[in-house]
Design a protein around this nucleic acid. Structure first.
Lengths: 347, 347
DNA sequence: TGGATGTTCTGAAGCGCTTCAGTCACACTC
DNA sequence: GAGTGTGACTGAAGCGCTTCAGAACATCCA
């Protein structure tokens, strides 16, 4: 026997003395042949070192690859929230015998177009991509079904999101109820220009990212005007720098609203840098409720969004789209305030 | 035109009036046809809504899918170290125009066998799997090249690892030089039984996991005998519980050696729980140097391993294997001690 | 001017599998 | 004993692409 060439369906078929169709059925439709024959086929296959139908060939023949692609806006490692969402997504599709191909983002907020063009997937989910990510065009060109998590908002497209406005309001209201009146806010990027710094009011209204816009809206709805510092990314160091700025102003804000926990961790650090005590001197509230939030010093008061659930819902939507279902209304998941120890009454 | 059926190579070929081979060449071997014709083909393709050769069909014809699979021992979200390694891996293979299919672990330390059987990949990398993960058998049965990160140690298999023994020695030596003599160690699981608790000495010698074994060896080489607490997973809560136990003994250890940062974070918390100050009352040293280590309270002294580099190297190895290269010697990456503030002189 | 050399394009054979319309043999039923 | 199922298997078409050995024609140099 030729030990160099991998065995195929044929190899097994002729070894057993049946047709290829029958061997195929042995794997895919056990009810189509007698149990005895099936047993014989499987045994022969094993002894031949045949590991089952080749996935690629099967995909071509069936015209689906049983795989969902996921596009991220950034590298995987930057924010734990991403991992959690991804986990929910992965386990959901895996549970339905689908694979997951990962397309992490590069510098320009999304995977490279070539990566997407090459990906073997029946459907793709986009995680919090910028509005005009080139990757999205490729998905459209290929005619693949799409589900987006958080953003961008695309017409006639399946989506799962959380109530960002409501969540932000929760955070702001909590602080206001605690007696705070002088606020500072640490926001995500408003535009794709990677700007970091204080936000002039004219930059506000037309922010390009839905999530940025919504959280900001929620904050400002409640607290009225306030200095906003824009951070190009959800990164601790950017939060630290921004918070340090905000906290150095006179009069100093007594409370900081942060668009993510990661930013809030940075703010906690900035407070330490300046010798301020949290929450005695300044209150800090985050957004996301990543696991670390509960372990911060002090434990972070934050807005919880169901991250794993987001991934799961996206997975279910993707799978549903594969059955030909229409996108339907966006799934909107609830948020809630987790009151820990980084926000306190104004003394 | 039939708007329901996606255009294929043929569609384009007959629209332009050339053979399929030529259209294929337009995409894959521009040098095989005149620039003018190529241009015309690409234009027609675009106007027809043809998004380029179907990846699956191409894979079948070329007999490789340009994809590397990665198997994890656990869910993605549990430890930031995983994300970082994955990131290095993903960007490396993406840079070489290969995709990444993700196979996260379930409960039994590895992806489901069916998942691996179905995955469309030319090569797979296994991240820190248990010695006898079923997933590994499937990889072997399919005859796919394999590169393992950390463990298990398999004969004739490409591998990338760090100097775990050396790293552990570094940590232990540092503590000893600081004057400590009473130690406690927080180790990973020694066996696949998910045991958590104090380790009887007879469980030690034959630990099933290389990483566990090596780090433990490194510690004990330097400090001699010491109480060891086994944690079934690299989880903060397990570290906290274990450390609380260890720190409640009389005489109390003055220094804790932890097999991972995640465990060490738990230990820090346990110290707080008990009203002990770090490093005044007790020193804590971790292993990994995840980003959070620098932000812990106090910043964690730990052994740094080049996580991203590990992923990158694994990616390069995987790609090399695809060219038919032999596995070669395991790549061993260096570790170093990062001296921050969680370990101090014994007072 | 004629063989050698290129350049550009084509035909046809696969890649390894699924699937559907049958064929065949063997029970049943009345 | 004719009709009707039914269970078990097969033949062949096809999924959408790549690739390789040429064919057809132009170009070049001696």
């Amino acid at each position: 026997m030729d030990r160099h060439r991998k065995p195929t369906l044929d190899t097994v078929a002729s070894a057993v003395g049946v047709s290829r169709a029958t061997v195929s059925n042995a794997y895919n439709r056990p009810d189509q042949l007698s149990a005895a024959l099936r047993e014989r086929i499987l045994e022969t296959a094993a002894s031949l070192g045949y590991a089952g139908p080749d996935p690629v060939a099967r995909s071509l023949a069936t015209r689906h690859s049983a795989t969902v692609g996921v596009m991220l806006d950034r590298p995987l490692s930057s924010d734990p929230a991403v991992s959690i969402v991804l986990d929910g997504l992965a386990s959901t599709v895996d549970g339905h015998d689908h694979g997951l191909v990962l397309m992490p983002g590069g510098v320009d907020g999304g995977p490279r177009p070539e990566t997407v063009a090459r990906a073997q997937a029946d459907v793709v989910v986009a995680y919090s991509l910028p509005d005009h990510a080139p990757a999205l065009d490729v998905v459209r060109a290929r005619g693949l079904p799409l589900v987006v998590i958080d953003q961008p908002v695309l017409p006639d497209t399946a989506r799962v999101e959380v109530d960002d406005v409501g969540g932000a309001r929760l955070a702001a209201t909590h602080l206001r109820d605690l007696g705070h009146t002088r606020f500072g806010v640490l926001a995500f990027g408003l535009h794709r220009d990677g700007a970091t710094g204080p936000v002039p009011t004219d930059r506000l209204p037309d922010a390009a990212f839905r999530v940025t816009r919504d959280r900001l809206t929620g904050y400002l709805d409640v607290i009225g005007e306030a200095p906003v510092w824009e951070c190009a990314g959800s990164r601790r160091d950017l939060g630290r720098a921004g918070a340090r700025e905000l906290l150095s102003r006179t009069p100093r804000p007594t409370a900081l609203l942060c668009a993510s926990d990661e930013l809030a961790f940075g703010a906690l650090q900035a407070a330490r840098d300046l010798g301020l005590r949290v929450p005695t001197d300044v209150s800090v509230v985050g957004f996301d409720d990543v696991p670390e939030a509960g372990h911060a010093e002090p434990p972070l008061t934050t807005v919880r969004q169901p991250l794993a659930e987001k991934g799961r819902r996206a997975g279910e939507l993707a799978l549903r789209l594969l059955t030909g279902a229409r996108p339907g209304e966006p799934a909107r998941l609830p948020v809630s305030l987790v009151d820990r120890h980084s926000a306190g009454v104004l003394t």
